[in-house]
């Protein structure tokens, strides 16, 4: 059975993204082992001479290393992903590269209609950056709008249309993982880049 790490993109207790990930964990329990992982507690990313990485980030990186894929649930703050998630991704590409060539599925919820569409688009761009280079499931937006009303008291999605769509995407994701196994040409290149990685040599897109 495949193993997944599901990152909750926000720290709020009332997160409907957490609800969605917990729903997926329950719904796909027969096909996959999904561990819902919190980012709450991670400090804002900051570079130091010692290249210090917080233990919480190292723990998450280990979990991702051991998983077949990662699911990220993101809300949208100011038309983009939360700083907390952005910070987590920076930690997870600071001298360590757990997400490199790791299959990633993005889901998002929002209280309004749009379902975090802009945040998801930015997240794809971010995951594609040279220091992350995750392998994101293409053509797979799952945007759950009006998320406060979307779940019943058991934590299940009320809308059959939405749950069917999610089922289809998750099945695709399972197959996508097998497919990406075969993409090992660029993988070697990415590993080489990662080996020569520094935050100062100008290859990372960073400034300082």
């Amino acid at each position: 059975m495949k193993k997944f790490v599901a990152l909750v993109g926000t720290n709020t207790v009332k997160s409907t993204n957490r609800k969605l990930l917990q729903y997926m964990k329950k719904r796909y329990a027969d096909d996959a082992e999904i561990e819902v992982v919190e980012l709450k507690g991670l400090p804002i990313f900051k570079k130091t001479k010692e290249v210090f990485i917080p233990q919480q980030a190292r723990d998450i990186a280990e979990k991702i290393d051991a998983a077949d894929g990662v699911i990220i649930g993101t809300p949208e703050y100011d038309h983009s992903i939360p700083a907390l998630l952005s910070s987590a991704l920076a930690w997870l590409s600071y001298g360590i590269h757990p997400l490199m060539d790791k299959p990633v599925m993005i889901v998002g919820t929002s209280y309004g209609t749009l379902g975090a569409s802009r945040a998801q688009a930015q997240l794809r761009q971010i995951l594609d950056s040279p220091e992350l280079k995750a392998t994101v499931l293409p053509s797979s937006e799952f945007l759950l709008g009006h998320s406060l009303q979307a779940f019943d008291e058991n934590g299940d999605l009320k809308s059959a249309t939405e749950s069917q769509k999610l089922d289809g995407l998750f099945d695709d994701f399972l197959e996508f993982i097998d497919l990406t196994e075969q993409l090992d040409n660029s993988k070697k290149l990415h590993e080489q880049q990662a080996a020569s990685f520094t935050w100062d040599n100008g290859t990372t897109g960073d400034d300082e």
Binding site: F45, A83, I126, L132
Partner: peptide
Amino acid sequence: TPEHNHTVPAAMKNVIE
């Protein structure tokens, strides 16, 4: 703004939030 992972640093986004 510098650029981290093709985006704004989390520190700046955090302030804006």
